[in-house]
Write a protein that binds this DNA or RNA. Structure first.
Length: 274
DNA sequence: CCCCAGGGCCCGT
DNA sequence: ACGGGCCATGGG
């Protein structure tokens, strides 16, 4: 049951757990433990509080109702994923995961940072970007707008610890700000076309594009292949060639897990990484 | 010292 | 299309 009031959302007896949703690797701006969490998106924040078998979400109700995709019935999706390889344990472990509908610009920047990196470091880099260039919202800093980021020199990204991704961030931010890249276009394209288009951005390859499509554009027929999913592939296909390319893995796993393979991937990633 | 992390770019074949 | 070297940073 999900109730919306003027200033809060009340969730009772639903597949919903901030621990799973926030720490499964899809989002990097959050903090909290057990029964109290805070998540940040753009210039907004939501407080999530557990009260008597319910979760209360305080914040911009319309924004976060959409952000948590509360109209989607995950019981149906979970049912459709049963009986596929390894999903029973993964769903049991992370059955309260929901794929968020995150801000497109913030997701693009975040997952460029994620490449060849560790989640705690990714969080730190994003946090330093917000602190140094976001807007002061009182008790937190917003994620900077494309306009704000376009005013930053490439040295800014080096200084906050982005490593060799500094140039990627600089170039991508400017392509988006100038309008060379239209961040709304992927919504109107097929998954394959949207992926090709995203990969025209500097620092966005096949894996990062899949993550952006899944976490920001609601394209669920993707299967991001990272080092953990490579291990998964050899668990499912132990006799396959050890040099199998990530591209073939993605194709095989997409076919195997079907139309909601992106959501299956998230359960599996979360389960394998624990 | 090594290896690895929610990989991609760039250059050869 | 495909493969290999290289890329910064920090923790184990």
């Amino acid at each position: 049951m999900i109730l919306k009031t003027k200033d809060k959302i009340i969730i009772k007896d639903e597949l919903f757990s901030p621990l799973d949703i926030l720490s499964c690797g899809q989002v990097f701006r959050f903090k909290g433990v057990n029964d109290k969490w805070t998540v940040y998106s753009k210039d907004k924040k939501a407080e999530l509080i557990s009260l008597e078998n319910s979760w209360i979400i305080e914040g911009d109700v319309e924004y976060f109702y959409n952000y948590f995709d509360l109209d989607k019935d995950y019981n149906l999706i979970i049912t459709s994923l049963r009986n596929l390889p390894l999903t029973d344990n993964a769903i049991e472990y992370g059955k309260n995961i929901r794929i968020l509908k995150q801000d497109v610009f913030e997701t693009i920047i975040s997952f460029i940072i994620s490449q060849n990196n560790l989640i705690p470091r990714i969080k730190g880099i994003i946090e330093r970007i917000c602190t140094a260039s976001g807007q002061n919202m009182g008790d937190f800093y917003s994620f900077p707008t494309p306009q704000k980021m376009a005013s930053l020199p490439v040295e800014f990204y080096t200084k906050i610890g982005a490593g060799y991704r500094d140039v990627y961030l600089f170039e991508t931010v400017n392509a988006i700000y100038k309008g060379t890249f239209d961040i709304n276009k992927p919504f109107e394209l097929s998954t394959d076309e949207a992926k090709k288009y995203l990969m025209t951005l500097k620092g966005v390859g096949p894996k990062v594009a899949d993550c952006i499509l899944l976490f920001a554009y609601q394209k669920y027929d993707v299967f991001p292949v990272d080092t953990w999913i490579k291990k998964l592939y050899f668990m499912i296909y132990p006799d396959s060639n050890p040099k199998t390319s990530p591209n073939k893995m993605r194709q095989d796993l997409c076919k195997l897990y079907g139309d909601y393979c992106g959501i299956a991937q998230q359960y599996l990633f979360y389960y394998l990484r624990k």
